[in-house]
Amino acid sequence: MAVLSVTSKVLKSSDGTEIYADAVGNPSNPSIVLIHGFSLSSSVFDNVFADPKFSEKHYLVRYDTRGHGRSGKPEKEEEWQSQRLAEDFDAVVAGFNLKTPFVGAWSLGCTNLSDILSFHPPSYISGVIVITGFPYTASVPHIATPFALGVIPPFTSTGDTPLFQSTALAFVRGLTAPSFALPHATYRALLGDVMLQPRMCCARLLGRPQDPKGFFEAGKAGLPMLIVDGPEDVIVYGGRMVDAVNSRDHLDGYEGWENLEVVKIAGAGHMPFVEKPDEFREAILGFVTKVLLQKV
């Protein structure tokens, strides 16, 4: 099998923060931007990038969000405003010359969807994919399990190193279904991502302000959405993701996400792209193909 060539770039966001991103596939194909989750990096999508069935007809792009991985790690409060995160995504779009990409976000990375849609019309992207995640910051207390919520205090504290270490170990173990054993190399890589993030960046990420009005306006306007649920997830309550995107508390006259599809991947936990890669690929590419055909 031929080794796929990856193009890597360090881009500059509007405030000067460096954003690391890379891409694989043919740039002329429909693009999918992947956004990772809490305290990790875009390397969580390594097996997606290595899958030729993903990249043969689609241009895959991923980036380390600010405060994570190989991207800049600003710590001032103003550097974590919603607009800053939207501009990071814009830097990726411009840096790879993307045209109306699909956005597949995972876990807490799904909150970036609300940032993007707060500062752009729904037509800026082709569709959104919520992968076992939190579509806006206010949804976290309702969707997160007690285990996930219990991670937050030790991850944002600098006063108890043993507690932070034990919580980090438990957090990474909890990313997959109890019956799934992460390869040890993957386990160590995920822990390494956690270690790379300054505790202040973690606190800023979790405490940043966000207005999800634009997110719900996009849903009302018919922007296609796919929700991917892992029934064995110990981080999020799957059914509550649907409740969150259909919530009527954030936009007057909103009756629910107009164009919504939900896929449950049996046996998967919080990382269906690792645990059930074939089923995950089928769900994502099926959704993308359907949306593209509807545009013709």
Rank of each mutant, 00 (worst) to 15 (best):
S31I: 09
L11G: 13
D64R: 12
D51I: 08
D51S: 08
S41A: 15
V24N: 12
E56R: 01
S31R: 11
H36D: 05
A50S: 15
S42P: 01
L40Q: 02
G25T: 08
R66L: 15
V44A: 02
N29W: 00
Y59E: 00
N47Y: 02
H36Y: 07
D64T: 07
N47I: 14
K53E: 13
F45S: 06
S55Y: 06
E18L: 13
V44L: 05
S28M: 12
R62F: 03
G25N: 04
D46C: 00
D46R: 01
L60P: 09
V61T: 14
I32Q: 01
G37K: 10
R62M: 05
Y63H: 11
Y59F: 15
V44F: 00
P52C: 05
G25R: 05
S55W: 02
T17C: 13
L60F: 03
L11I: 08
L34N: 01
V48M: 02
Y59C: 04
K12L: 15
P30V: 12
P27T: 13
S39W: 12
G25D: 03
P27S: 04
S39F: 11
S28I: 09
S14L: 10
G37H: 04
S31T: 12
F49V: 07
A50V: 00
Y59W: 06
F54W: 03
T17V: 15
N47S: 14
K12F: 11
A23I: 12
G25L: 13
N29E: 13
H36A: 09
V33C: 03
T65Y: 00
I32A: 01
V48W: 01
V33L: 04
S13G: 11
I35R: 13
G25H: 02
S41I: 01
F54M: 12
N47M: 13
L11C: 10
F49H: 03
S43A: 14
V24K: 12
Y59K: 10
Y20T: 00
L11W: 06
S31L: 06
S14A: 15
H36W: 04
H58A: 10
D22V: 02
K57E: 09
T65I: 12
I32H: 05
D64E: 08
Y20W: 12
V33F: 07
P27W: 07
S14C: 10
S43M: 13
Y59G: 02
T17I: 14
N47W: 02
G37W: 04
V44W: 00
I19A: 02
D22P: 09
A21N: 08
L34H: 12
A23P: 12
S42K: 05
K57R: 12
D15H: 14
T65H: 11
A21V: 04
D46F: 00
V44M: 09
R66Q: 14
L40R: 11
R66F: 06
D15P: 08
G25V: 11
P30W: 14
V48C: 01
V61F: 03
V44C: 11
S28V: 13
P52N: 08
G16C: 14
K53T: 01
N29R: 09
V48A: 03
F49P: 05
F54E: 04
